[in-house]
Amino acid sequence: MHFTYNVEGGNFTRAGYASSEIKKILKQLNVDLAIIKRTVVASYEAEVNIVAHAYSGTIFVDITPETILIKFVDEGPGIPDIAMAMKEGFSTATSKVREMGFGAGMGLPNIRKNVDNMNITSEVGKGTVLELTMYLQ
């Protein structure tokens, strides 16, 4: 099963919409609740990162009986130092974004804690690709 969602950079009013759709689909498929919960945390954080840090992006969801694969592809500034970005507390979010309660630098660490596998590649000046995998069996 494949689904695709578009994410608009900078538009915080819609942040979380795609993750909410993904949650609905996983519920309909009767996926284990603990797996849904972990997927939702990771998906939300990755979606918000496109909104907060990139210009636009696309989320590709691919569900098989064995795995949930979610790929976040964005056009944006990219991440110059991925190891640094993965660190708890590291954030380049603007003060406006921080005032809203985003930008605590906990997003990527939250993602790592909740998924079975994550792979992130980025090209400065072009964009970032984040692939998340959850195993269903």
């Binding site: 919409y17 939702v40 985003f102």
Partner: peptide, 16 residues
């Protein structure tokens, strides 16, 4: 319990 009043609060409340 929070002091955040914007819409993302409901997105999170619903997702969680």
């Amino acid at each position: 319990i929070t002091l955040q009043t914007h819409r993302n609060v409901m997105a999170i409340a619903s997702l969680k």
